[in-house]
């Protein structure tokens, strides 16, 4: 699966268009990490556990988008965009979307 943020795949032609495919995940923290994050948020600095959590959530969302595109029969996803939103404190939604296409 070729995934790009540009509106084409270099040196290839778009043959079929399948429309929008997307994947999302909602992830929450477990309490231990949340307390540590609260302490870090008091003194300042990067919240490493949150970075890791959102990174793994993003990977899952991309995988879900890819499996949706595979089901449609696409071999590439172009114009991919990502969005994050906080649902409640300590839980975030990651949304990844793009256009599924067949390229040759």
């Amino acid at each position: 699966m070729i995934i790009t943020t540009i509106n084409h795949v270099p040196e290839m032609k778009i043959v079929t268009h399948f429309g929008v495919v997307s994947g999302s995940t909602v992830k929450a923290k477990h309490v231990g990490n949340d307390i540590l994050a609260g302490i870090k948020n008091f003194f300042g600095g990067e919240i490493g556990s949150y970075t890791d959590l959102l990174e793994s959530a993003r990977e899952t969302a991309v995988q879900r988008m890819v499996s949706q595109a595979e089901q449609a029969g696409a071999n590439a996803i172009i114009n991919v965009r990502m969005a994050t939103s906080a649902i409640t404190s300590g839980a975030a939604e990651i949304y990844v979307y793009g256009t599924a296409v067949v390229v040759k």
């Binding site: 070729i2 995934i3 943020t5 008091f42 300042g44 600095g45 990067e46 970075t51 991919v80």
Partner: peptide, 24 residues
């Protein structure tokens, strides 16, 4: 939305980087 160097490229890949920064 364009690639500057169009010739001689082999492949493309999605790359992501993120950081969560807390205040004090």
């Amino acid at each position: 939305d364009e690639i500057l160097a169009e010739h001689g490229l082999a492949e493309t890949e999605l790359v992501v980087g993120s950081a969560v920064i807390g205040s004090d």
